[in-house]
Design a protein around this nucleic acid. Structure first.
Lengths: 159, 159
DNA sequence: TATTTGCTGGGCAATCTGCATAGCATCCGG
DNA sequence: CCGGATGCTATGCAGATTGCCCAGCAAATA
């Protein structure tokens, strides 16, 4: 579960140049090919690396508007709401959270006007009492894991 | 910029089985290898596919706690705050948003107790007036793009 | 001390990639 | 209706990579 420095370097390398193969990676890291192969297998069965799915940009797909919506759910309707939101393609992720709102979801839309349609679709469901939406203007730090990986692998030695 | 049905099928296929190569993909999709190659090149230069970075799970790295923090920023300190947050490894992403809070960021931590440390680190900076945090309990819909891709590629024909 | 585990270095057959060519069909402006 | 551009198919080939194997070795473990 803990990763060492070599794991860290491997993940960072894969993040930077995803198309390189095992052989090239072993050259870059200065270790044997079998080692890289074993590390990658281990990282994947550990679940540290879930996969290598293509990194899709919603904006390039025609959905340049992102928003976060906090939803207040009627007691006992949680499961139904989850199922409902899972059917909406514009809902990219959904979390249940502590605090006054009950759920937080990330939405995308084709335009600000289209966002209204998406929100109507999201909240147009019985179990949802209220929704409050924040539109994303800028994204100074896009979703990233590398710094965390580096920190985790640095911690390894002196855990 | 718009993607057609074949693009959609290709992306979905890559998402499901990321390690397959161009040749295998062409077999699965029932098209020529050169076609898949051309489509992938186009999708990447379009920016629809940003890359194939490894999908890292923070929980497996030892950071099982996720939270969203809404930050209120002192006028004119935006840039400094961005720079500050970018240096914190536990800040996985940062958005500037409309509404009362000014920024929304996604945090991870090693435990609920550790989250306190992370939050202190995040808000322990001059430009930040106030922070309100929501801890994620469940994640019924993990970050996903496939439904959106399918919708976008279905729209293609009858746009 | 015997055993297990992880890394190295090497080898081999099968496969895949990158690159190039050529034939077709479709779409579009003239 | 024609010329030209574009996109898909089909194929070929040399070189690189993969998956799988083995044996030696060092360090940690029982």
């Amino acid at each position: 579960m803990a990763i060492d420095h070599l794991d860290g370097r491997l993940i960072v390398l894969l993040a930077r140049e995803p198309r390189i193969g095992v052989l090239e990676a072993s050259r870059r890291l200065g270790v044997a090919r079998g080692t890289v192969q074993a590390r990658m297998d281990r990282l994947q069965s550990n679940g540290v690396i879930r996969g290598f799915g293509p990194d899709v940009d919603p904006a390039a797909l025609g959905y340049p508007v992102t928003a976060f919506a906090t939803l207040e759910i009627k007691q006992g309707q949680g499961a139904d709401v989850r199922a409902h939101l899972a059917t909406v393609a514009e809902v990219l992720e959904l979390h249940t959270i502590t605090g006054h709102g009950d759920m937080l979801c990330r939405l995308v839309a084709r335009s600000n006007a289209d966002l209204q349609r998406v929100i109507d679709r999201v909240v147009g469901f019985d179990g949802i009492v209220r929704a409050s939406t924040a539109i994303v203007m800028e994204n100074p730090v896009p979703l990233r894991f590398i710094p965390l990986v580096e920190q985790a692998s640095d911690d390894a030695g002196r855990g």
